[in-house]
Design a protein around this nucleic acid. Sequence first.
DNA 1: AGCTGTACTAACCTTTTTGTAAGTATGGAA
DNA 2: TTCCATACTTACAAAAAGGTTAGTACAGCT
Lengths: 114, 114
Amino acid sequence: MEKEKIYVTARCPIRTTLELIGGKWKLIILQQLIMNSELRLFELKELIPDISEKMLIQELKTLAISGLVHRKNYGEVPPRVGYRITKKGAEAESLIKEMVKFARNYEEIGHEPM
Amino acid sequence: MEKEKIYVTARCPIRTTLELIGGKWKLIILQQLIMNSELRLFELKELIPDISEKMLIQELKTLAISGLVHRKNYGEVPPRVGYRITKKGAEAESLIKEMVKFARNYEEIGHEPM
DNA sequence: AGCTGTACTAACCTTTTTGTAAGTATGGAA
DNA sequence: TTCCATACTTACAAAAAGGTTAGTACAGCT
């Protein structure tokens, strides 16, 4: 899937986290799964109307491979698949809280330079 | 610089934060400035050897416009410019800490699914 | 036989992000 | 006069991310 690459700089935890939850959608998906115990694909689509189906599936797959999300296939027809947050994924909750805090604080204090 | 866009979904704090500090380099730059009181461009280049000069300057400019970083031009020749973290930028410290915590936790507990 | 609902794939394209390489400006030192 | 150091700019190219559209599979219902 990914070619062998050589990284010059040492593995840095910020980079690691960025790779796990970076991008436009992963944190939003994780947030929904943190708040909702189990969600099906179409439920996520409703909760995040802007996301394209491809992106949603693609990100869920990545998150599942990373172990942040658990995918349960009920083996029914029509297909039924449930997504849940894992323990590791649930660790993103405090991160999300900090991000929300950061945004609120940013908007609160105006735009004075210093 | 940016065309007028209409966003369908309501402003979400995760999105706001992502816009402020998202991308490959911004958090890394902020981290260095949090740790170092004042840094010149070439010092940042040494501390973050992987980054290209263009990216470094570009991201510093964006961060300065956002008010997360303060740029001080000493008006000397050869040019001397110092970069400092602002109050608003310093708020990223706890966010960075959470990211580090997230990465460490992720690596600690293995890759078991649930 | 054809339609339904759900989760997903695949091919293709556009936009955004990141990178490379070369050039600019400045006043003082050699 | 030429070179130096530093902080940029600019034009271009490559890579990554994101988006659109049209499929596939399947068992049951009609």
